[in-house]
Amino acid sequence: MKILVPIKRVPDPATTIRVLPDGSGIATDNVKWVINPFDEIAIEEALRIKEKQSGGEIVLATVGQTTWQEQLRTGLAMGADRAILVKNDGYLDSLGIAKVLARVISDEKPELVLLGKQAIDDDSNQTGQMLAELLGWPQATFASKVEIAESKVTVIREVDGGLETIAFKLPAIITTDLRLNEPRYASLPGIMKARKKELKEIPLDSLGLALSPKLKIKKLTAPPKRQAGKKVGSVAELVSVLHTEAKVI
């Protein structure tokens, strides 16, 4: 089976994010860039499906700058077969990204598209669902288990108050949640092999898409800081202050 995994380059989750004084963005000096952690889970799931079916192809795709090659190479080192970078230096909103990916998917014709439920930079949680609608495909967001039998897929989803099971036929879009799997690290031979794998660059302009972002970010501000309170010396004191001072119990 051919699986396409769209990925995004984001600041490492351990990075302390600081808003620039002029509100135009975040400070990017000293930021380590990584594959969006939920997209890593998507790559891992694709690898496991391929291993189980002992065949198929995994194609990574991203829409970004030349530097985003680094994250594509990391994904190739994990075991993906080839990668596509749609080169774009400008700003696109989620719908714009989804339109570009929908175009790549129409050309590549994968049977399954796996991606993270949200990118941990803008926290929008939109691209997978938008892609599903643009392609007219079924969607399963927040997947914690994926089972494929013939061309039928059953997905267990993490929803409020429990687990939901839905089913559909391929092709389909699945977005990954935390517990779907634990992504592997790229091995040294994997890293060596990745250097020789195909990484194709496509200029965004060459796709002839009309994209004008309708969501615009005017400015960023730092959130109000919560002040630290006081330390208490004992459990009895903690219960006492919650009862008499904060009056919450």
Binding site: D93, L95, Q126, M130, A132, E133, L134, Q139, T141, D160
Partner: peptide, 24 residues
């Protein structure tokens, strides 16, 4: 509201309407 259901539905709706979406 951005519940699991709201998060699942609204981006799909936005794409269908070719509309921008603001999350949460």
């Amino acid at each position: 509201t951005a519940t699991a259901e709201g998060k699942d539905l609204m981006p799909r709706l936005a794409a269908r309407l070719d509309a921008p979406m603001a999350s949460e």
